[in-house]
Amino acid sequence: MNIATPPEKLTAKDFTTDQEVRWCPGCGDYAILKSVRSTLADIGVQPHNTVFVSGIGCAARFPYYMETYGFHTIHGRAPAIATGVKLANPDLDVWVVSGDGDALSIGGNHLLHVLRRNVDLQFLLFNNEIYGLTKGQYSPTSRPGTRSPSTPLGSVDNPVSAALFALGAGARFVGRSIDTQQKHMPTVLKRAHEHKGASFVEIFQNCIVYNDNVFGRFTGKEVAAENQINVEHGKPLVFGKDGNKGLRVKPGALELEIITIGENGVSIDDILEHDETNLTLANLLAAMEPPTFPVAIGVIYCNPGPTYVESVRQQKESTRTKRGSINDLLRSGHTWQNG
């Protein structure tokens, strides 16, 4: 690997290609692109050592706009291709960019396996609860009743929760952010990048054309404080416009409840602290939804474990006695001399 230090500090511009960005005006993807570029510059990654792999969909155009290596592949298969990239060269810094249809419908199987194997890469799922590039059909994350060209009377099937799916698949890092939160997103992206293993980040992304304001119930300015909670490891799980609401485990039940500091003798000490290594808590937090609960953003779960490619390589090295020659291989086992 070339590990020369970049001569000077890179900026977001250094990660910008000469290609015209072709998302719809007002698309949430622009904000995510901006955030990713500036995060990479802040981290100081080497562009030539960075690979963006995507499948198909609006989000999948992402690599064309990143001045790194990029591979725009086929629908749903980016995790599998990224796994091959890492198998071939574990030193590459690999990011997968996907959407809700790409990752959870046609590519659901590969997402499951890239997470459970714990391949060391960052998986960004831009969730807008709709198929954009194919002109607005409902997606596997669409809420029941979503009206779309393919469900004119409203969808009837249950959506999948991206974060719960990831936790269920065995992801060891699950984070969440929102396209418009330019301060918050880099913190989650940096943590995802630091994490060794498969880092799953769900980004709530607004599709201005086909599903505008679908996350308005918790992203809208007037409701955000009450309906979002930014979880941070070791800090109390508080939220609300006055910062006086918090979460705790409901006595006598395996569920969370909202309590208010100053009411019924509740103090800050009664609020549950976030433990990002606790899988049960992560599942409870990931499942929270308005109107009952705020939506959890931030690093919901982080609990590193052995990564796939490293384990494969280590296993091979540990049994490797010498570099074999093909002639030895062909002469292994029973042979006999004729004449």
Partner: peptide, 9 residues
């Protein structure tokens, strides 16, 4: 796909 990814890399 993994084979293609490996060749790419």
């Amino acid at each position: 796909c993994a084979a293609i990814g490996a060749s790419y890399a």
